[in-house]
Each structure stands twice: as structure tokens, then as C-alpha cells.
Amino acid sequence: MDSMEMYVSSLPPQRAAVFARLAAGASELAAQKPDIRDFVFVPGYAHPTWDDGQSVLWRAIEQMMLGSPAGDDELPVIWVGYDVATRFTNKREAQGFLVTDRRLIVKDDVDLVFSKGEARQYPLAVATTGVADTARAITSEAIDGYDWNGAGSLVDEEDVEWFRELLVAAITMTLDAVANTGTPIAAAPTTASDIRGRVKELGLSPAVKYADDKTHAKHFAKFAKKMPLDADEQILACFSASTLAGPYGLMLTDRRLRSRDLGEAPVTTQRSVIEPAAVRVNPANESQIVVAPGDVHDVPSHLSAREVGALVTLIQDWADGRVG
């Protein structure tokens, strides 16, 4: 399939009718936000600025939705985003927020030579507080966790607020429209209980290293000299880097949280003493995570603010026993 038209023609008539309704609603919402019209794309509707808008949108749908679809008949509703061209792969990659009838897909990183940028997703599951509050909560989590550095000068602070308003409206419209078709709305999703699944859900795959990955064998051998483990202690996930001065970073094991900053002695905290609700980014240093009174761990400075926030969530889940 190489176009939106072909995708729609492959849908059952009932789903095609739902798609037409959602796209029409999205078009009306887009028209109410002229300040960010350059960033807003609706399937089946000509873009007010870009003649190739539908081709650009289809590329975003292919990259963000079809690579890992939520069902064979998932319906794209609206994309609020932009393309970037990477100097490593020299291809255009979609960034931003894609609303479908089942989830909000967010992508703010790009493919590199040895790693692939991964999208995050927020299922459109209605909370007990209702549709409007659900839409606001999903949007806030996505917007507040977005790494805007990649957008450069394209998006300013005022644009971000317009993005927020449009996404809330689009998600609300989508949830209402889907409910009115009689299609069951998803129940609140459960998160992965294994460490690797949770790392992927949190968008941390590009930053993680696993001890059983042979490509990182030398890295972990050097780490073992600087930060030795207990007998039989198992590394679950490691967020680290290395320089001529040696390796540094943070790792979760089956029993401890361990970290080492360059030129500093290792810091370790037993898993059992970490209070999940107390884990947070250090207000005085965004490259540090506080896990208990007096226990502060450094994280590599190359991690983005979003990744550090996701790492806080991972540590909370790990400390609480929800992943292991």
C-alpha cells in the first residue's frame, strides 16, 4: 500500500464510514487553529500550505503507525508535526503527534547509524473521570514529555500551547465519535511486567544497554572493574556511556540501583529501601535522580529531559516490584 486512498479502499465499509466521520471532524478542528496550520495534516483533506501535504502525511502514517499498527484497520485521524532530515541517514523522518482511533503516537527522536528512533504510544482508554479529562491527561503526558530540542526553531512556546489545545480537542472528538458508532472503547491498558518491555514502552530503547548484548561486552567488562557487583547479582538494564576515562552511568540490577559519575566513586542503593513515590529528578540538577533521603544517582548527561523522566518512571516501577 502506498497511499491513503489505497489504505481506505482496503477497509470494510463500516470502518471506512467511521474514518470519513473522524477525518471530517479533524478537518473542522484544524481550521480552528490557523496559527499552526503548517503543522496540521488531516487525511483526505488538502493542506492549506503544502501542495504535497497528503504525501507528507502518508509518510508520517507509514513511519509512526503502520510499522507497528494497533490492528489491521486502525484509522489515522490527524497528525500534528513536522519532518526532519537527519545527517546520518539523509532521509526525512516524521516527528510529532499522530492521533488514531485507538492511540496517540508520539515521536521526537530520529534514526541514528546504530540505533532506531522509537515512537511512544498512549492508548485512548477512557478513565473513570470521563472523556474530557482523559483527553487532557493523555495530551499533557505526551506534550510535557516531548523533547522539543529536535524541532529547533520550527516550534516556539506559543505553538506548543496550540498543539496542546488541538490534541485535546482531537482526542475528545475521536473518543466521542468512536463511542457513538457503538465500537467498544479500550479499557485502561496494563503496562509490561518485564524490564525490557517496560523500557520499550517508555521510549528508552535507544538509550539502554543489556549485559547479554555481545556488542556491549567490552563496555560491561570495563564497568565491572569500576563498579563491581555482588556475587550472582544480575544486571537488568544499564543506561551508560564511556570515555577514555572509563565508563559511567546508571544500572538497575535484580537487587540494587547502581551508578557512577566520571571520576567519582560508585553509588549504590538497595532496591528494598527505595520508596517509589519519592523517586524524582533532582530539582537542583536535572542530570540526577533522587531515590531516597540522601541517595542521589547521576545519569549520563546525554540523556534528554524526557528520557530522564522516563527513567524515573522505570525506577519507580522496578522499586515497586511491578517490573523485574
Rank of each mutant, 00 (worst) to 15 (best):
S3P: 05
E5L: 06
P13R: 03
R15L: 04
A17W: 10
A23Q: 08
A26C: 04
E28P: 13
A31M: 06
P34S: 14
I36S: 09
I36Y: 09
R37H: 07
Y45V: 12
H47G: 05
T49Y: 12
D51L: 06
G53Q: 05
S55W: 09
S55A: 10
W58G: 15
M64S: 02
M64I: 01
M65Y: 01
M65D: 01
L66R: 11
P69K: 00
A70P: 07
D73T: 11
V77Q: 10
I78Y: 10
V80T: 14
Y82S: 07
D83K: 12
V84W: 00
T89H: 08
G96R: 04
F97V: 09
F97S: 11
F97N: 11
F97G: 13
L98S: 04
V99S: 10
T100V: 08
L104C: 12
V106Y: 07
V106S: 08
V110W: 00
D111Q: 06
L112A: 02
V113Q: 06
V113C: 06
E118N: 07
Q121C: 12
L124V: 10
A132Y: 13
A137P: 00
I138R: 08
I143V: 12
W148G: 04
N149R: 12
L154V: 15
D156I: 04
D159W: 02
E165D: 10
L167P: 03
A170D: 13
A170H: 08
T174N: 15
A179Q: 13
P184M: 14
R198Q: 07
G203Y: 11
G203L: 14
P206E: 07
V208A: 01
F220K: 02
K225E: 09
K225N: 06
M227D: 13
M227H: 00
P228W: 11
D230H: 10
D230V: 15
I235V: 07
S240C: 12
S242A: 12
A245E: 10
M251S: 14
T253W: 00
D254T: 15
R255V: 14
S259M: 08
R260F: 07
L262W: 15
A265M: 09
T269M: 05
V273W: 02
I274N: 07
N282L: 13
A284Q: 08
E286V: 15
I289S: 02
I289V: 03
P293T: 02
D295C: 03
D295A: 02
L303K: 04
S304F: 01
A305N: 04
A305W: 04
A310F: 01
V312C: 05
T313Y: 00
L314K: 03
Q316I: 00
A319P: 07
R322I: 14
V323E: 06
